[in-house]
Simulated scan of single mutants.
Amino acid sequence: MARRLRFNGTGSGGGSCPAVHEDLDTRDVIVHGPRLTDSADIAQLQHLDEHEIPIVVPRNTLIDFGPKDRDTEPRILDPQTFAGMFENFQHSAWHLEMRKGYAVDRATDTYAQFLRDETPKWDMNSDWARTISAKTQDGAHVGRVRIVDNPPTEGQRYLLAHAEHNAELGEDVRNMWRHDAYAVNLPDEDFWIFDSHIVALCQWDDDDNLTGVELISEPARVNQYNRLRDAALHYATPYKDFVAALAAKEE
């Protein structure tokens, strides 16, 4: 079905391109104008997909005829679409893990091996392992801070063991006691930050299944999450030191 488009305006006196239209149902903005063709200019563009066409629009045209209000409806991705973000980030991906356990972990063979007191056999050829190792080998930073209860839950103990696998992929893994996390005002939110400008706020059901992901790109909100990341990294302990301290405590 065709979109219902509203013509917002054009910067050209004769009504020709470039111009701005708005979808009345989705509030998407459609812009058309002269195509950018210089290869040196195109080479400087970031996040340009092979199916996308860059165009040139005067700044004042966007200011005059673009929407002035921010869309307050949250943008929710399904888990499959969210998974694609790990293919597309450029510089960094960072995760604050606040939950007591994850259903996706409990469904793995390595979780069953862990429960049998066996050494888990980590799969270095899984889609996740290949994706993350390729990113870190190319210079990207991937890290996480995992919050741990006292005493640790079964799922958290599994992740303490799993940190070895994360480290093999080039990740920076740290841990922090939950009471310490609350002391520095970390929220009960589980989220990823991609390239320091996109936050993916994870949504879970009561059985620890990921049901959706809210994307946050508003600069002020993203900066809040970046500050939470900085605090978590400052106070968290590298996983090897945390595991050693926990073992000594439980002797």
Score class of each variant (00 low, 15 high):
1 M>N: 11
2 A>G: 15
4 R>F: 14
5 L>K: 10
7 F>N: 05
13 G>Q: 01
16 S>E: 06
19 A>W: 00
19 A>C: 07
23 D>C: 09
25 D>A: 08
25 D>V: 15
26 T>F: 00
30 I>E: 00
34 P>W: 03
37 T>Y: 00
39 S>Y: 09
41 D>K: 09
46 Q>R: 12
49 D>W: 10
53 I>A: 10
54 P>E: 02
56 V>K: 13
58 P>Y: 03
58 P>V: 00
61 T>A: 07
63 I>S: 11
66 G>S: 13
71 D>P: 04
71 D>M: 01
72 T>Q: 15
72 T>R: 12
76 I>N: 04
77 L>D: 02
81 T>Q: 13
83 A>S: 15
84 G>A: 03
91 H>V: 09
92 S>Y: 06
96 L>G: 06
98 M>A: 10
101 G>H: 10
103 A>M: 12
104 V>P: 05
108 T>W: 02
109 D>G: 15
110 T>V: 15
110 T>S: 11
112 A>G: 08
115 L>V: 13
116 R>E: 01
116 R>S: 07
117 D>E: 07
118 E>K: 09
121 K>D: 03
125 N>S: 14
125 N>W: 09
125 N>D: 07
127 D>L: 04
129 A>S: 07
131 T>W: 03
131 T>R: 04
132 I>V: 10
133 S>K: 14
134 A>D: 01
134 A>G: 12
136 T>V: 04
141 H>R: 06
144 R>V: 14
144 R>L: 06
144 R>C: 15
148 V>R: 01
149 D>W: 02
149 D>G: 07
153 T>I: 05
154 E>V: 15
155 G>K: 01
158 Y>G: 10
161 A>Y: 04
164 E>N: 07
165 H>K: 11
167 A>V: 13
168 E>K: 14
169 L>V: 08
169 L>R: 07
171 E>W: 01
171 E>P: 09
172 D>M: 01
173 V>Y: 04
174 R>Y: 02
175 N>W: 06
175 N>Y: 11
176 M>C: 11
176 M>I: 13
177 W>D: 04
181 A>R: 05
182 Y>H: 12
183 A>I: 08
185 N>L: 03
186 L>I: 06
188 D>S: 05
189 E>W: 05
190 D>P: 01
194 F>A: 01
195 D>Y: 04
197 H>F: 03
203 Q>R: 13
205 D>E: 02
205 D>P: 05
206 D>F: 14
206 D>P: 08
211 T>Y: 03
212 G>R: 06
215 L>Q: 11
216 I>C: 05
218 E>R: 12
219 P>G: 13
219 P>M: 02
220 A>F: 06
221 R>V: 11
224 Q>C: 13
226 N>L: 03
227 R>P: 12
230 D>T: 15
231 A>W: 03
233 L>T: 14
233 L>A: 14
233 L>R: 11
234 H>S: 10
235 Y>G: 09
239 Y>Q: 04
239 Y>M: 01
240 K>R: 10
240 K>M: 03
243 V>E: 04
244 A>S: 03
245 A>Y: 12
245 A>C: 10
248 A>G: 13
249 K>Q: 08
251 E>C: 15
